[in-house]
């Protein structure tokens, strides 16, 4: 039983990271109808920038203040994400207003390549570490309930709390602020929003910035857990089925979908894997997405898709 709970908690943690990436997908899709394949590349670039900026400033400061170095790192990475958002809007999205979804999807594949190339050119392509002072030591819980208790990383708790704060913050941002309203208006109808004076271009920059920040948070959590390296981009491919499961336009869907897939993946790997030679993780999420597509294409929380003539 303890093992089961440990597996499940491990899955929840992975799932939370998927949720964060999926959240980036959903934000951008809601505001611009673009499915952003480059979200994974953004996570990579954000994490790389964070790792390298804090490393460099740490060296410059003589290794005295890790905290200050991290703050500089976060600011630097934030600036990079802003630059990315601005450039994407200025050079790509602006020129593709009203294009079909498939075109926009493919263009983000291009963006992903450019970001991967540029990010590694500027920040290097080795494995880097992010140390934001997360406690690495595991704790044992529920000792009273099960023999031996359940082994949990403290780090994971903090990460989960961080993600929860982020989601809450985003919800408030979208529901309560003027910018949030503008974003939702743009998402609903570009032209109508423009006609009441909402600047389309600025809104897109903002939403890509927000997605960039979400990517930064995901990058920091993931990076401090496992190091920053190129394989971070594959996170986007892993998180893609999450949005299908949760529904493309639903923030709660991204969260719940991420957790479901994280847990499902781990449990099936542990309990079913041995029967089929392992490696279920590779396709588990995709098969779930496939089933959802066939029976409920709008996802668990998405709005029903109606085609009109």
């Amino acid at each position: 039983m303890a093992f089961f709970i440990e597996t499940m908690l491990g899955g929840l943690m992975t799932g939370m990271l998927y949720s964060l990436v999926a959240l980036g997908f959903v934000l951008i899709f809601k505001a611009s109808g673009v499915f952003n394949f480059a979200q994974g590349a953004m996570v990579l670039v954000a994490a790389l920038a964070m790792a390298r900026f804090s490393e460099w400033s740490n060296a410059a400061l003589g290794g005295d203040s890790l905290f200050l170095a991290n703050v500089i790192g976060i600011i630097g990475a934030g600036a990079v994400m802003f630059l990315v958002a601005w450039a994407v809007e200025r050079f790509v999205l602006r020129k593709l207003v009203n294009q079909e979804g498939a075109t926009l999807l493919m263009v983000t594949l291009g963006i992903a390549y450019v970001l991967e190339g540029l990010g590694q050119t500027f920040f290097g392509s080795e494995i880097y570490s992010i140390d934001v002072g997360m406690p690495k030591d595991p704790v044992i819980m529920f000792e009273g309930l099960f023999e031996g208790g359940v082994l949990i990383n403290k780090e994971d708790f903090i990460a989960a709390a961080l993600a929860a704060v982020l989601v809450a913050g985003l919800t408030v941002f979208f529901q309560k602020t003027a910018i949030g309203r503008a974003l939702r208006a743009v998402a609903d109808d570009h032209q109508a929003a423009q006609s009441v004076g909402i600047p389309l271009n600025k809104t897109w920059v903002i939403v890509w910035c927000v997605a960039g920040l979400v990517a930064l948070v995901a990058g920091i959590i993931w990076g401090s857990k496992m190091g920053v390296q190129f394989s971070l981009v594959t996170v986007a491919l892993r998180a893609l089925p999450v949005v299908i499961l949760g529904g493309l336009t639903s923030v709660p869907g991204a969260i719940v979908g991420g957790l479901i897939i994280g847990v499902g993946e781990k449990l099936s790997e542990v309990y079913l894997g041995p029967f089929v030679g392992g490696g279920i993780e590779i396709w588990f999420a995709y098969v779930m997405a496939l089933i959802v597509l066939l029976f409920r294409p709008q996802g668990l929380f998405g709005e029903k898709i109606i085609n009109r003539v």
Partner: peptide, 28 residues
Amino acid sequence: IPSLRVRGLYLAVATLAAQFLCDWAFLR
């Protein structure tokens, strides 16, 4: 078959599913 119900991104996901299932099957 999913293309009969979905398009665009959704279809991309369905085809990716084929990709990952094959990767796995030929390896394992």
